[in-house]
Design a protein around this nucleic acid. Sequence first.
DNA 1: TTTGAAGTGGAAGTCGAATTCCGCTTCCGG
DNA 2: CCGGAAGCGGAATTCGACTTCCACTTCAAA
Lengths: 203, 203
Amino acid sequence: MTTTADPHTTGGKMLSPVLAGAPRPMRGDAARNRARVLDAARAAFSEDGADVQMEQIARRAGVGVGTLYRNFPTKQALIAELAQRWIDERVEIADEALAMPDPAGAFGWFVRRTAEDMASDAGLCHLFSDLPDNGCPIESILGERTERLLARARDAGAIRDDLSVSDFQAILGGLSAAIARTEKWELFAEMLITGLRAPAPCP
Amino acid sequence: MTTTADPHTTGGKMLSPVLAGAPRPMRGDAARNRARVLDAARAAFSEDGADVQMEQIARRAGVGVGTLYRNFPTKQALIAELAQRWIDERVEIADEALAMPDPAGAFGWFVRRTAEDMASDAGLCHLFSDLPDNGCPIESILGERTERLLARARDAGAIRDDLSVSDFQAILGGLSAAIARTEKWELFAEMLITGLRAPAPCP
DNA sequence: TTTGAAGTGGAAGTCGAATTCCGCTTCCGG
DNA sequence: CCGGAAGCGGAATTCGACTTCCACTTCAAA
């Protein structure tokens, strides 16, 4: 969670001598509530899909809808925040993979790890597809990692060379859909890794 | 389209001497309208996803919403009918595959063909996932075909032997999700066929 | 401890989309 | 060609979310 704007982070007149900068931190209990809401939302979405009602999320978090809306002006915004977290997590995983010496192994590891994470939050990640996929900079930072991951694997001859980043992302989308139906993520990951291998490896 | 109940197919007192049986066929123009609606719905859904409004479908079909609702009492029902057609089509394809002499080839052909069909109606088939997947008999008739298709391929050593029907169906679900993002169905089909091959084929 | 800004809950408002209703129109058997 | 059952259109209603509002409570700085 780095980029998304928090409420109360802007505006409001300065009351202390400090001229500019940090615009007064969120009140302690409020921050706690915000976190609770986020957790509740994550759980609710991944259990019941995108159609959970805001009120249910609020109840689950033990707050009123008003509080929910104070923190996230819109259902969309709430989902976006969740998506943001998922993506940040993904970037970290990708970096870990990039730090591995063996390109092919790193690629496989990344796929397996992603499948595993999806299995523990299938509904959730499945839900991000509805987000405005306008070229937001957040996506691109992950795209850039993915790009490098693929390039390395490709150069090492571990994957077919007609696989673009967007193809790969589409495939991950498919993966999450498949995992949402049965949680056999290991099978699916294996299948992907094998299926993406360069064709005709054993003539 | 065989199982789903048509409106006007039941009830109503007999007016002709014929005692029981065919309860008076639908009026000619009405049948025409029903067909138009179905076509419009198919097009609308596959272009704009599940969130098209009933009124748009009606307009597209050149009828009023009233007419639409006369034929399909519910949006859900309309979608179900579409799903039914898709499944019937799928059963036919599966039967064609089962008639082929080479099990491995048949399996590959079925996967490719399905991917291709999905590509031409991505939104549509993607939408069926929302349907109540209660063990309706319709599903099971397709499941039975799939079962045989898989069994044949498995016996021929063309696919890994830990692949259940439901796994395979989950995979097809993933396939449709992936295709909905980019229409590279050939790539995806190839990937699947390769990925599902029995492991360690070239020691 | 006081004080008022920040935060809270949840009832009420809004709004978009599904569904119903009904007077009018179109088929079609006799 | 007539009568009336079957079908039609589309305005009006219903319904179920999301979102707003505001009197009341809680925190924390002085």
